[in-house]
Amino acid sequence: MESLPDFDLIRPRTLDEAVKARQKFPGNRLLGGGTDLLVNIRRGIGDAPTALIDMTNIAELKTIKADAKKLKIGASVTIQEVADDSTIAHHYPAIAEAAASIAGPTQRAMGTLGGNLCLDTRCIYYNQSDWWRSANGFCLKYQGEKCHIALKSKTCFATYSGDLAPAAMVLGAEVEIIGPNGQRRLTLTDLYSGDGQNYLTLEEGEIITALSIKKEPGLRSGYEKIRTRQSIDYPLAGVAAGLCREGNKITDFHIAVTGTNPKPVLLDGTAHLVGGPLDDEFFNALDKLMSAQIKSMKTTLAPGNYRRKMAGVLARRLTKKLFDNYCQ
């Protein structure tokens, strides 16, 4: 792979310094564990940054705070710390299960929550070396005119593959953001645009500082995914579910999917499925929602159709598991 281009490495100790550094160095990028960004920079995908701002030295972004009502995870908390936290595992299991399933142990100890939420979208025509892409013809996501997945497409289909986002979505998470114009909060679903190219809705100079989740008593959650190998690989499809049960009836239901679309998809229309038992009618209706909204294209070596079908299988399997094992 190519050497890294010249850049300044900035290592702020406070959030305030980081916000100022973002304004002082135009063309900067935020650096978490580097497990996604540094590889991409070396492959020449995305414009070479003039400065990298290392977010892992900022103490206020490295804490997990939990009380009876809510959870707040700082953006620079490592994925392994999320996976190991007993409160998260007990009260927000989808988050812990998703974290524990990311890449392998060494990558988890390096990668951060903020980095995983902002994981660049991926495609077999994009995540390649510069010489590979120049030989094949550059693509719509970067430097090129056309999408090699769908030749006539005007938009990029590169796939969002982060595991934490769907898990947090079924729990109704928000992200906390700081920028040149102060602080704001955003529902996690609104962080993603749905366009593989400009996949985040963050404004220039903004920084995600934390993920916050309100505790919903009675909501049980989980996460399952498939990948080529059981370690290191990105998900071919990943599904998070959250549900409530009263007697034999499902009374609340959320599903979110990653590894298929250019954004993590919180399935629309699941509110119409609740109120009855978990029978064939329920699962057929779930299948319909999944096949209408999960649109995996051939952005991985595994066929898009396979990933779409497997997302459906995972959704059924996980829903049944959470429902059967439900305890008050």
């Binding site: 564990g33 580097g34 497990t35 892992t56 060494t106 100890a109 390096m110």
Partner: peptide, 21 residues
């Protein structure tokens, strides 16, 4: 993982670690 070293007892990938950090 061929480049794994220990940083403060924790395995880390030296190919994804900037030396100044």
């Amino acid at each position: 993982g061929a480049c794994t070293v220990l940083i403060n007892d924790q395995p880390a990938l030296a190919c994804l670690t900037l030396a100044p950090t």
